[in-house]
């Protein structure tokens, strides 16, 4: 497996790709924060936020619909908000009877439900754009510059570095299991659920030991190469004037979104 098999980065030449990763991280978090601050039902402000998002999409040269296509990852969770529709606070809109129960959607409930959906949908798209235009190692350095404790960012960097190695290990284990689970026509392969769970448990234990022992070897190899406790980078990450300008523009557009949302 390739080392960057898990990266969602899309190599391109664009103003957004060339921005300092710090700017992109700050703007993404500010965008999500701004969505969380908007009051329920401020549709005009959600529209402005969406325009900001579309502009960022366009500037990234990945296509206007790029993040839209990938924006449905959080959709299954919308189920959790469905019950908000039936909030007893608002004016009842309809009343259905179903198996002896009355189901009453209210106007307040609907407003709340769609506001939650809008916030979530907008926020997840900006996060998608962030990882599509920033390489993961750069992202980690950005967090380091933003004063996230260095040992934590380095742990995440290691996770990313060894993820594909251990995924290969998982595939080897899965292949071995498959090779040993022959099935005769008309008969199910493998034993009962408990038996299958036991096989999986042993695989998890096996994977744990292989990882644990591997981390020992990695540590020794790193020590012998002069490891002192943190990773270094050759990428300087200096904020240029263009970066400051982009940061200012993005933050003021979010301020505008807030104004639109709160002034009626």
């Amino acid at each position: 497996m390739h080392i960057h098999a898990f990266d969602r980065y899309h190599a391109h030449e664009s103003p957004i790709h060339h921005l300092d990763p710090r700017v992109k991280v700050v703007v993404t978090v500010a965008f999500i924060l701004s969505n969380a601050l908007l009051p329920d039902g401020s549709w005009l402000a959600f529209l402005v936020a969406w325009l900001v998002l579309l502009l960022a999409n366009d500037q990234s040269r990945l296509g206007l619909g790029y993040t839209f296509k990938r924006s449905f990852v959080a959709l299954p969770f919308a189920l959790a908000a469905v019950s908000a529709i039936f909030s007893p606070l608002g004016r009842p809109l309809a009343e259905w009877h179903f198996l002896g129960l009355s189901i009453i959607p209210t106007d307040f409930g609907l407003l709340r439900f769609f506001s939650i959906l809008a916030r979530s949908w907008l926020s997840v798209q900006m996060a998608i754009l962030l990882v599509a235009t920033t390489q993961f190692p750069d992202l980690i350095h950005a967090f380091e510059h933003l004063r996230v404790p260095r040992s934590l960012t380095t742990i995440v960097a290691f996770l990313y570095r060894y993820l594909f190695v251990l995924t290969d290990e998982v595939y080897r284990l899965l292949r071995a299991r498959q090779a040993r689970s022959a099935a005769a026509p008309g008969r199910r392969s493998g034993g009962s659920v408990v038996w299958r769970a036991r096989v999986t448990g042993s695989m998890a234990g096996q994977l744990f030991l292989r990882s644990y022992e591997r981390s020992d070897r990695i540590y020794n190899a790193m020590l012998s190469r002069g490891y002192t406790g943190h990773l270094r980078t050759l990428n300087p990450h200096v904020m240029s004037r263009r970066d400051w300008l982009a940061l200012g523009l993005a933050l003021s557009s979010l301020l505008l979104t807030q104004l639109v949302g709160w002034i009626r």
């Binding site: 742990i155 995440v156 290691f158 251990l166 744990f208 540590y219």
Partner: peptide, 14 residues
């Protein structure tokens, strides 16, 4: 760092 990082990758892979 190496131990935690590789163990995190283990949980992810598991």
């Amino acid at each position: 760092v190496p131990l935690m990082g590789v163990m995190a990758a283990f949980i992810f892979a598991a």
